[in-house]
């Protein structure tokens, strides 16, 4: 059975004798495989892949995310990462192992309302995600405009090997910092930011049109030229 990008709704039968663990966004009842989401499905023999068109952001370890500090206590910051769960950034991660609440002030590094780029170091069903900013390209983001996109559409914004993001960056003379959680920070001249935001909005609307890259190219060439 070969199906290329077929529309599915929750409860649609995808496979009537599926062996093994169900792939993401599907579930098994006996040997039958059903869809859990509105999406597009690709079936090739044993391989079933479902691309959802909507859905909340579920954290995954090693994801690059963009968050906002919403609170802090003596030992950690709480970060809103546009997900079901609030993430925590431990103070030790920022101040090092000799961190002590008496000598270090958390607000000297991050204040409530600060935007930061971070990576998820741990997450599972029982615990809230824990972040780190100790890596290249992570930490506080000082300038730029945040733009939201559905988390399920982020792969489309990035494109094959980053092609779509590269087109937007070069045509609008901006830099995109793309968080897996659906927050994008656009940095650069203000005309470029407006244009890039327009392109991102078009991706939100037409995320699964096969010729999207060309559409974005046309839009940006027309608007900037």
């Amino acid at each position: 059975m070969v199906l290329v990008r077929t529309k599915v709704l929750p409860g649609d039968l995808l496979h009537d004798s599926y062996q093994g663990q169900p792939p993401p966004h599907t579930y098994k009842l006996g040997n039958k495989l059903f869809s859990l989401k509105v999406g597009l499905v690709e079936i090739e023999g044993k391989e079933v892949k479902l691309i959802p068109l909507a859905g909340p952001y579920i954290p995954r370890v090693n994801d690059f995310v963009i968050g906002k500090i919403i609170d802090f206590d003596a030992f950690s910051w709480d970060v809103d990462i546009n997900s079901i769960y609030t993430a925590h950034l431990p103070a030790q991660d920022v101040f090092g192992r000799d961190f002590s609440p008496q000598t270090h002030s958390l607000t000297s590094q991050f204040k409530v309302g600060d935007i930061l780029a971070a990576k998820i170091v741990s997450y599972d069903r029982t615990k809230d995600p824990v972040l780190t900013v100790r890596d290249h390209g992570l930490g506080k983001i000082i300038n730029g405009e945040p733009v939201k996109l559905s988390p399920s559409k982020i792969p489309r914004l990035i494109g094959k090997k980053g092609s779509m993001a590269k087109i937007i960056e070069s045509k609008t003379k901006t830099k995109l910092i793309i968080g897996q959680n659906g927050i994008i920070i656009v940095q650069g001249p203000s005309e470029g930011i407006v244009l890039a935001a327009k392109a991102i909005r078009l991706i939100e609307e037409k995320a699964h049109v096969p010729s999207l890259t060309n559409m974005i190219n046309d839009l940006l060439t027309k608007e900037s030229g």
Partner: peptide
């Protein structure tokens, strides 16, 4: 619920 992308066994 389907619009919100919450996983559902069926409509």
């Amino acid at each position: 619920l389907a619009d919100s992308g919450i996983s559902m066994r069926d409509l």
